[in-house]
Write a protein that binds this DNA or RNA. Structure first.
Lengths: 248, 248
DNA sequence: CGGGCCCATTGATACAGGTCATGGCAAGGG
DNA sequence: CCCTTGCCATGACCTGTATCAATGGGCCCG
C-alpha cells in the first residue's frame, strides 16, 4: 500500500508548485527577500520576477555556455548546480533548497560557466539580472541585500573548502546532513526526518568522496545509531553526536 | 655578496609602496578598477579610497570579530586571508596580489569572520563599504563591477573546491603555481621566475595538504626538471608540462 | 659568537579512502 | 512476467598522503 503523502511535512497548501504567486505571498520570502524591503519595494521587485511552469526532474534551468541572463530563487524542490571541466569531470558546486538563490556565479561573465538541474519537480523564480541591477540602483536595500547574498555565497564556498581540505569523510557527510537539517528547520520542516533529493554520487561529488565511501559512511552511521537510513529517507536519531562529529 | 635587487622585475618607480597615488595613476587600475568607468567617475571613486602607511609583514589588515567597514585593494605586496574555526584550526582562504580585491566575505555580516595579514610589506587601498554602496547607486558601472568582482570570487572558490576535492597533491600544487604565474603575468612580471611570499605551511593549508607533502612535491618537481626551487624563489623550467599536470 | 627558534627537508610507517569487482533491489519496458 | 537498467551496498585490496621523528640551515638576539 503505497502512501501518497510525502514524508516531507508540507503545510496546508495543496500544491507547492502552484503558479501565480507573488513575492509578497510567497512562503519563502523571509528567506530570499530582504527583510528590510518595504511593501511597495517588494512589489517593484515582484514585477520583474518571472515564474514559469515547474521544472521536472533532470530538467536544466540553465546550461554552461549559454547566455547569462538571470539569477534564480527556488520556490519549491531542489536544484543542483555543477560545472564540467575540459576532461569532462563533473563538479557539483551546490544544492539549493526553497528560499535560496542560485546562479550568482554567472554574473562575472556573459555566458554561464556552470549548469543547474532540478533534482525533483521544482518551481523556480527567475530574476532577470539587468532588471535587478536597474532596480538595485533605485532601492539601496535591494543592492545591499544582493551584495550580502553574494558575500554569503563566498563564505559558504570557503567553508566547503575547509570542510573538504581538513575533514574526514565522516565529518564531511555529517556536516552536509546537518546543513540540510538546519536549512529544513528554517523552512519549518522537520530537522530530523527528511528526504535527500540527491543521489549518493552527487553527495560524494560535492564532498570530494567516492560513492562507495558515502555508502559506507551511511552504513557506519546507522550501525552507530546516529541515523536511520532508508534509501533517500533520512532520520537523524542522535543529533548531538552528529553535531559533535561535524564539529559545529 | 647579497644582491639588494629583488628578482621581482619592478618598473622604474623607485618604491612600490609610495603614498599619495590616486586611482587614475595607479599601475594596478586596469586590474582593480572597472575599465568602463569614465575619468570623472574614477575621480569620484578615488575620493573615497583611503591609503594609509604600508603594512609590515605579519601585520593585520583586519581581524575576525572586529567590525566590518571596508573592502580592500592590494596596491603592492601580498595579503593572506584566513579564518579560524572554534577548534582553533586555521584555514587559509586566499592569497591576494597587487590589483586584487579582498575582504568581500565580510559584507554579509556586521563583523569580520575572517582575518587578513600582510605576508610582506604591502600597500593597501581601503574602500569604505558604505561609501562604496552609495557611490554604486550613482554609478551603474561601478555597481556592476562589484557584482562581477564578487561573482569572480565565488567562481574562484568553486574552482578551489574542485581542485581540493578531485585532484592529487601534485595537481594542486602545480595549479597554485600556475595561478600565481598567470597573475604575475597580468601585472607585467615574469611568469616563470617569482618569489612565493607565503610559507610552505600556508601553501599546504590553502591546498588541503600537509607541509611535508608540499615539500616533497617541490622536491619531486625539481627532480623532474619542472621547477628550480631555491627557498621561496621559484623558476618554472617546463611551463607546458606543469600546465599538463594541472590540467589547465 | 653561540644558543635558540623557525622553517624546510627527508625518511619510516600507518591508515583512510580510492579502486575494482560482485551482488541485490526496485522501477520501467517489452 | 521476465529482462534490463540504474542505484546502492559490501568486500578485498592497494596507494597516496598523513603522521611521527630526526636533521639541517638561516636568522635573530643576547
Amino acid at each position: 500500500m503505497p502512501n501518497p503523502v510525502s514524508t516531507s511535512a508540507m503545510t496546508a497548501s495543496p500544491c507547492p508548485h502552484r503558479q501565480g504567486v507573488s513575492c509578497g505571498d510567497c512562503r519563502m520570502k523571509a528567506l530570499c527577500l530582504p527583510l528590510a524591503l518595504e511593501l511597495d519595494q517588494v512589489e517593484r521587485l515582484d514585477r520583474i520576477v518571472q515564474r514559469g511552469r515547474p521544472f521536472q526532474r533532470d530538467e536544466y534551468i540553465y546550461r554552461a555556455g549559454t547566455e547569462f541572463r538571470s539569477v534564480y530563487a527556488v520556490r519549491s524542490g531542489t536544484i543542483k548546480t555543477f560545472s564540467v571541466n575540459d576532461q569532462g569531470v563533473e563538479q557539483v558546486t551546490g544544492f539549493y533548497l526553497p528560499g535560496e538563490i542560485f546562479g550568482m556565479d554567472g554574473i562575472a561573465h556573459t555566458n554561464h560557466i556552470s549548469s543547474a538541474v532540478a533534482l525533483e519537480t521544482s518551481s523556480i523564480c527567475e530574476i532577470p539580472f539587468n532588471r535587478l541591477e536597474e532596480l538595485s540602483l533605485a532601492l539601496p536595500n535591494l543592492q545591499r541585500h544582493f551584495f550580502q547574498l553574494m558575500s554569503r555565497e563566498i563564505i559558504n564556498d570557503q567553508r566547503l573548502v575547509a570542510l573538504i581540505g581538513k575533514n574526514s569523510a565522516e565529518e564531511r557527510l555529517a556536516t552536509l546532513l546537518l546543513s540540510i537539517s538546519t536549512r529544513n528547520a528554517q523552512r519549518n520542516l522537520s530537522e530530523v526526518r527528511f528526504r535527500l533529493p540527491m543521489s549518493r554520487a552527487d553527495i560524494g561529488n560535492y564532498l570530494g568522496l567516492t560513492v562507495e565511501t558515502v555508502s559506507r559512511i551511511f552504513g557506519r552511521f546507522q550501525k552507530q545509531r546516529l541515523l536511520k537510513v532508508d534509501k533517500k529517507e533520512i532520520e537523524i536519531l542522535d543529533l548531538d553526536s552528529l553535531q559533535e562529529l561535524a564539529n559545529i
